[in-house]
């Protein structure tokens, strides 16, 4: 065989191997797959539960949702603090803190950047009495935690009628295996 013929045969073999691999790779979306072109612009954003709903004023909620988290603190912390102090006036008293030891300014500084911290080293929970903001599990009673941090004072004892909605669990049991959420009703 001439050298060129060998080269052509080698190319043909390579092409056939490549084509074979493509056709058998279910995870590959080549040029024949769906169209994912174009740019996508943000409409909603969420880190921690209920943040936009509780702490952002009515006319600003869309703006909050379309702001990158890295820009939220500077743009919205003062609004968060004003709304927290209107919601729970005790926070306006100098030195007043919640059970995490955070006063109005530091608490709202944490909240205004709406991201959820997640530990990669162990327990993941919104709050379980020991761990704080190491994730959010399905069964976490996040609303009561937030009501306690807003209304419950330094030791969770204040405003008991407002700091627990007494709905402590979901209406369907979660699964211990993937996908974890309960089947639909």
């Amino acid at each position: 065989m001439k050298f060129n013929t060998i080269k052509l045969m080698a190319i043909a073999v390579l092409v056939s191997i490549t084509a074979y691999n493509c056709s058998n790779d279910d995870d590959n979306n080549g040029p024949d797959g769906p169209d994912f072109s174009g740019t996508y612009a943000q409409e909603d954003q969420m880190g921690r539960p209920a943040v936009n709903t509780v702490f952002v004023s009515a006319g600003t909620k869309d703006m909050f949702n379309t702001t990158a988290p890295s820009a939220q603190g500077a743009a919205f912390q003062s609004m968060f603090q004003a709304n927290l102090q209107a919601l729970s006036p005790a926070y306006a008293n100098p030195g007043d803190q919640n059970a995490l030891g955070l006063d109005a300014a530091t608490f709202t500084t944490v909240l205004a950047t709406d991201v959820l911290g997640v530990s990669l080293d162990g327990t993941t929970t919104f709050f379980d009495g020991t761990n704080v903001l190491t994730g959010r599990a399905l069964a976490d009673d996040v609303i009561t935690v937030e009501l306690l941090l807003i209304f419950g004072g330094e030791d969770f004892s204040e405003n008991p009628g407002l700091s627990d909605d007494h709905v402590d669990a979901n209406d369907k049991a979660f699964l211990s295996t993937f996908p974890y959420l309960a089947t639909p009703w």
């Binding site: 539960p49 936009n52 952002v56 869309d62 994730g135």
Partner: peptide, 29 residues
Amino acid sequence: GLCVIAADHIDAPAVTGGTSDITDFYAFQ
């Protein structure tokens, strides 16, 4: 200004009732 409160359900006018409205986000081991 606040008609409904929830985790993030119908949290803002532009997304309420639409396909982009995030209701919740979870992250756990």
